[in-house]
Design a protein around this nucleic acid. Structure first.
Lengths: 340, 340
DNA sequence: GAATCTTACGCAAACGTTTGCGTGTGGAAA
DNA sequence: TTTCCACACGCAAACGTTTGCGTAAGATTC
């Protein structure tokens, strides 16, 4: 079991100094051609790789990006990560992914862990609990220590930093308008409780679209789900005997569940009720009927977020006091669940 | 923008030496109570956090686990990661996730990157390309440098190390037997090309189950898919006018696609054809009809893999020359696609 | 043969820690 | 007053790099 070889060992073997080895490997003109070749051959033979840790310590940067997301088993977030990885790897950055599991504490711990030397900057979508508690000290502290942060999707208005979002309200409006345009007039919405920022925004978009058609908002057409685990029962009760011709669901699971529940209640999608979802994931695509949905373009979000972060990391800190919010376009992916 | 505070700065402010500060923060008896309190108060005030990089360099370990998986946007792999994170975090380890994107080169690059200082050990499921090329030098090198590796799911028999797998053949046999037990006799299989280890094993299990019932293997009942992206067309052609009463698909996508195709061809699931899949993911659960499937218990795999790795990391290297292969039980999750 | 210039290398500091050991100070014992 | 012992602290090395600068030895110039 040969241990990893260091400059020091090479130096000793070749009976030169450490600095000579280091310079030789970098093809410094200071070192004679002869020595350079000898060192390089030796290094290759022993498969020398510089120790990243030592480099990080010396350079005071790690060339790695920390990504913290609320859930790792989640299609949307993983597509975002895919986008981040693409540009990060292209620019020589490593990506460390941590999941907060929607726990405030775990978010703080992960952030502090990565902030104390493991990452140069962060791409972050905050945990539910964080949105509820409104405690953002960990993010503020990280930023005040000079580490840039890019927030995406579940962002926080009070924090001044780069952000990548979609226009959730607009997307929801687009979804609702699509339902309206195919003739639906009794449109229910299945959404989340209000403290989830995106849920609230999507609800707003839904309401705005209704107003555009002079359709009064009906309390009984709005279902706000707190406990996702038990959504099927809630949705079932909500939908039973309700005189609706369309459902707008703010995520995939709600859309799929609504479809299932409607089937059980003897209604067919899209003939009796049209359904539209949010987030273009694997479920919407493969479900029967396939679900019309609003695509968030997760990969694009990741790409933009990574670019923003790397820009901040690589520009001189002097000119860094300018923050941008990138709004990714949503688009309507029309499938069978809204074909009348 | 206050920079991160170091021992040196605290030492200077308090006019003591760096070592005094370090020892004081560790409550060393060497330091007077008075000084200890002063230092701690100051450290808290300035929110001192030891620099992980420096610690890693000093201790020659990073307390982080490198996980490399073929795809990040993949339900099974993310559940495994979930399991890894659980035990890693509980034991004070960080988790770095990298995806090889099924590319051999990216797998090598990621591994070398993490191996050169960023991680103490690896949990790895190899890329398709790696299985095809049979080039494992990067794994061998990593291990010979003293970094333990745990392989899971897509493992490599030739490599001697800890492994966590399911008994793919047995799982496939269980699936096929289930179909046989409900009366199916003309069972097709939709599988992958043979160089994917798990695909081949599952095919073997299918064949073994058939033999158990003295059913001859029929070439025309076996579809091996190379290009997953185009599987719908292949499956459609394969299934057309075929006299079968059941399909065993080696993954979720194939199972869902088969169901869809059968529907289009005028057959219903499960009445005309029963379907069983492999991997208990989000699709199987929510599809209509919900799909009977073999669960791989991804989270368990992650948990076991992390435990194996951490054991290796924390035991004395002397007694480390013993490798274990953990076989996770698969289980049949019966849903509607096989209810006659 | 002396003065100067090149060439080829080594020294040492720095990044932020930890820790074994050395040491100055003060008080107590003799 | 001398000796000794705790006590409280600092020194320095080490982890593996990079890099500016100093400096030998040899080559060149006059």
């Amino acid at each position: 079991m040969k241990q990893k070889v260091t400059l020091k060992q090479i130096a000793k073997e070749l009976d030169v100094s450490i600095s000579t080895v280091s310079k030789a490997l970098k093809d410094s003109a200071e070192i004679s051609l002869d020595t350079r070749q000898k060192v390089k051959a030796f290094a290759k033979l022993y498969n020398y790789k510089p120790n990243n840790i030592a480099l990080s310590l010396k350079n005071r940067k790690t060339k790695t990006i920390g990504v913290i997301i609320p859930e790792i088993v989640h299609h949307f977030f993983t597509t975002v990560i895919g986008g981040v990885e693409k540009v990060a790897n292209a620019k020589g950055y490593n990506v460390i992914i941590c999941s907060s599991n929607n726990s405030f504490d775990k978010e703080v711990i992960n952030m502090e862990m990565l902030a104390s030397g493991s990452a140069d900057g962060f791409i972050l979508s905050v945990a539910k609990e964080t949105q509820l508690k409104k405690d953002y000290h960990h993010i503020q502290e990280t930023m005040s220590q000079g580490m840039p942060v890019v927030l995406f999707d579940r962002i926080i208005d009070e924090i001044v930093c780069d952000k990548v979002i979609i226009d959730d309200a607009k997307g929801a409006q687009m979804a609702t308008n699509h339902l309206l345009s195919i003739g639906c007039r009794n449109i229910a919405i299945i959404t989340t409780v209000d403290y989830i920022s995106v849920g609230k925004l999507r609800t707003n978009g839904y309401l705005r679209a209704l107003r555009g058609y002079d359709i009064p908002e009906k309390e009984e057409f709005i279902l706000k789900i707190e406990d996702v685990g038990n959504c099927e029962a809630e949705i079932s009760e909500f939908l039973l005997n309700k005189d609706i011709d369309a459902v707008f669901a703010v995520n995939e699971l709600f859309a799929v569940t609504a479809t299932k529940v409607l089937n059980e209640q003897g209604k067919t999608v899209p003939n009796d009720v049209a359904i539209i979802g949010f987030t273009d994931g694997i479920l919407s695509k493969h479900f029967i009927p396939s679900l019309t949905t609003i695509s968030q373009h997760g990969e694009d979000m990741g790409i933009r977020a990574a670019k923003l972060l790397i820009d901040k990391l690589e520009c001189d800190d002097t000119e860094a006091e300018e923050y941008r919010t990138v709004i990714i376009d949503t688009s309507l992916v029309e499938r069978k669940s809204t074909k009348k």
